[in-house]
Write a protein that binds this DNA or RNA. Structure first.
Lengths: 128, 128
DNA sequence: GTATCACCTGGAGTCGACTCCAAGTCAAGG
DNA sequence: CCTTGACTTGGAGTCGACTCCAGGTGATAC
């Protein structure tokens, strides 16, 4: 799979994919004879994972650390687990905040809805 | 209430509070005789609202537009409602993505947990 | 064989959102 | 009176995360 296809499939630009590789967020992708990246299954899965984590706001630096540990094999399992647990907690906190905001938005929207209805009623009554 | 108190209370720096005022995200706060900001009830409520919206990731630009409309009175109610509805949708989408990521993290953590346990068992068995 | 096109590289630029700084003002304490 | 400390301003700097660009290569289409 060429970079453009991966880019298309996951809705991220080729520039971003190359950038992620440059900074070590995804492992170097194998190239064909003419030096062009050829994404295979394992690469695709990495991209998918990173895309998912980034979409939830996990910082690049943390993810680089994590994938670095993955490369170092089994002896880093504890460290990896700790990272994931920490990020899980932060994510849960952010989601709680967002839920609170969502509730407030819903409430405000409802209030505005009523305001609009009241106004319409006034217009009907006054024949305006 | 002076800026430091507001800053303390909402966990945002004085610099951020002044910055928000500069860019029109919060209305100019009244000053005492010597030119120092004195936050009153209405200011506090605005700060709280902005803090809440920002914590959920609503972009500053959108919030500036919204508070601008609020200043223009009742005739902007529809427009305000539309903004809130739009942002509400985006927020819901982001939360869905985050929930997906959270589930994956939970799953991975569990897998790591098992890996650690398996390892410990091995150590016990081999007497390592 | 040359034009087109997708790819490559390293480096620079952009963007949103702060964050920091120098230089200045004022009120209160010693 | 002078120092201290919290405030003021406008402007510059930083940070994370891309995003763009110039200049170059190689395969395919005409």
């Amino acid at each position: 799979m060429k970079i453009a296809e991966v880019s298309e499939r996951y809705g991220m630009s080729s520039d971003t994919l190359r950038y992620y590789e440059r900074i070590g967020l995804i492992q170097p992708v194998n190239r064909n004879v003419s030096g062009i990246r050829d994404y295979v299954d394992v690469d695709i899965r990495r991209v998918e994972f990173i895309k998912c984590m980034r979409s939830a706001g996990l910082p690049i630096e943390v993810l680089i650390e994590y994938v670095g540990l993955v490369q170092q094999g089994d002896r880093t399992i504890e460290a990896r687990k700790d990272i994931l647990i920490g990020q899980r907690e932060l994510l849960a906190v952010r989601m709680k905040e967002m839920q609170k905001t969502l509730d407030i938005l819903d409430h405000k929207i409802e209030v505005y809805e009523n305001a609009v209805l009241t106004k319409e009623k006034e217009i009907i009554q006054t024949g305006e």
